[in-house]
Design a protein around this nucleic acid. Structure first.
Lengths: 172, 172
DNA sequence: TTTTCCATGTAACTCGTTACATGATTTC
DNA sequence: GAAATCATGTAACGAGTTACATGGAAAA
């Protein structure tokens, strides 16, 4: 329901058509989430069927008509509901990268260290890029800070793991 | 490919049948990942078709026959490949819970604080449960520590967010 | 004797992605 | 005249889940 919340929230600010929504999300919200074009169009159709949004066509000359969406009263109620649920529940995170760690003892510790160093490089680059992002307006800044804090925590943890495997490599 | 790595890694230690794998993952690896029964059976079929594992039936009396799986040479190569990829690449994390935050200014700050406090309770309970988990053998301990560090980081961040909305609630 | 456990699976569905298809318009 | 941009979608696929179906054995 997070995507639906996102679309409702954006449409509540101003009416938009699918292309516009997709573009905004890919450009301005990339640090936070992503939403492919077909998914956007599909969800807009679905939400129209559910009566959360209403669509009206705008046509300019001979161009393909724009379907501009507007949040209905039912959609506004739904938005409030989804927002409250989203805020009150932590999103469960699973670390797929931990599965490899379970089996790290299948490799020589030196190999594990080399591989984790590679992971570290990518992670550090991600952190640097996020930190370099220009200060964003309002609550979006919170999201960027969240990402930075998370990446810093990941880096710190990764360093302790690397240190351990480095230590055991020296005794092998 | 994380689930495939998981199954290969477990089967590499000892041959098992589907039910056994599913049970082990749900019971002993619950902190780290989950794998539903149909998914397990589906993946085992797929990996058999790919030649990564081979199956042989064991029957005991009148009970349903067990399909016991064993990692083939090709499967072992695949395991090495998947393991190296997994270790060398950070897993990208998306925080669905941040989408609500983008629209938090649609609510009164006091409401946001109340909702985030709820989130905090759940998060804190999760952390307590993870900390209370008995020390696990070997590299699984790493995974539990990862989870603890992550949850602590999340809690810390959540507290700063709550503090900000508390501050702005007092000036509304 | 009814429930739980062992052990297998199928069917239907949701969610999301990639790749493909269309056609006008503006920019180089 | 070619390429990028605007604007819409469909079709096919993949991953994973829930709910359902089966049937014997052990435990309550």
């Amino acid at each position: 329901m997070d995507r639906e919340l996102l679309l409702l929230g954006l449409l509540r600010r101003s009416d938009m058509h699918g292309y516009q929504l997709h573009e905004f999300i890919e450009r301005d919200l990339a640090t936070c989430t992503e939403l492919k074009k077909p998914t956007a169009y599909f969800l807009l159709d679905k939400m129209t069927r559910l009566g959360w949004i209403v669509q009206h066509e705008e046509r300019e000359g001979n161009r393909p008509p724009r379907r501009v969406y507007h949040v209905s009263a039912a959609g506004e109620a739904q938005f409030q509901q989804l927002l409250r649920t989203n805020l009150s529940q932590p999103s469960s995170t699973r670390f797929g990268g931990d599965i490899g760690l379970i089996f790290a003892n299948s490799l020589a510790s030196a190999d594990v260290v080399a591989l984790l160093e590679q992971r570290r490089v990518v992670l550090a680059a991600d952190l640097a890029a996020t930190q370099a992002a220009p200060a964003h307006a309002g609550s979006l800044q919170l999201v960027i800070e969240h990402r930075i804090i998370h990446l810093e925590s990941e880096l710190g943890w990764l360093d302790t793991v690397i240190a351990r495997f480095t230590a055991s490599a020296s005794t092998e």
